[in-house]
Amino acid sequence: MSDTFTDQRFDVARLAIPDWLLKVEGLGKVYGPFDDAVINSTGSGPETAKSPLNGSIVAAWDVSFEVAPGEALGIVGESGSGKTTVLRCLAGDVTPSTGAATIRLGGSDLNMFAADAAERRRLRVDTVSVVYQDPSEGLKMNVTAGGNIAEPLTAAGWRNFAKIRMRASDLLSRTEVPLNRMDDLVRAFSGGMRQRVQIAKALANSPSVVLFDEPTTGLDASVAAGVLDLIRSLLEENRIAAVVVSHDFSVIEMLTSRCLVMHHGRIVESALTDQLLEDPHHSYTQRLVAAARS
């Protein structure tokens, strides 16, 4: 019942990966004023993310990890654990309070958190993609499936209509969306189908990093299984560095090789996914694993 690492196995979060593509260091997000005392009054030990000192919420603190191309890192925890905050900071939807998130591209490193808004948006076009839990966050509902995919393509400079359509239909067929629905408005699609379109759109410009936020939450179990299968095979096919956020260990198990467990904004445990499932150390992890097994 402690949140320190006793471990005979790798502390995956602090594992230095030589060929990382994405490196997060000391990411923190606090709502409200804070200092060391405020930070220390929150976390897994105090069992709260909300500081009793001044009510500030330490949504995430001291989060560090690296992800290499071709591998998927999971972040698991219940709602309020801080995992979504971490993802949103990486996506650029939320501004972190502290820390760095470096992307290594073609030999040069770029700290995303130090980039301006325009640069972050450019990264979202062809380098960092996000698949949101709610497809309507990542898609334009009043635009066709093909049109949604055309958006990142044209943003990246594609100007040939036939080629845009070809690429869109390739992606849609890869994500198992019927081609005769390519020109239908996304608004008319079921939840599972919308999610597939969102995934197709995310892959349009062959990004180096894809962030998945609860990709199958809200979908029927059978539909979810299909989408997970799809994601897994896509990750295998492309050399993507993926971060998968979920409260559901079965999703993490299916998609990731390593994972971090977050609780009250902190990383409480990290290990290879298989090992974590087999032998969870932290009490919180144990609860999560048990829930997944039932």
Binding site: K140, G147, T154
Partner: peptide, 11 residues
């Protein structure tokens, strides 16, 4: 950032 314009032409 004229991508929304391009999408409307595509549509």
């Amino acid at each position: 950032d004229y991508s929304r314009m391009w999408v409307s032409l595509y549509e």
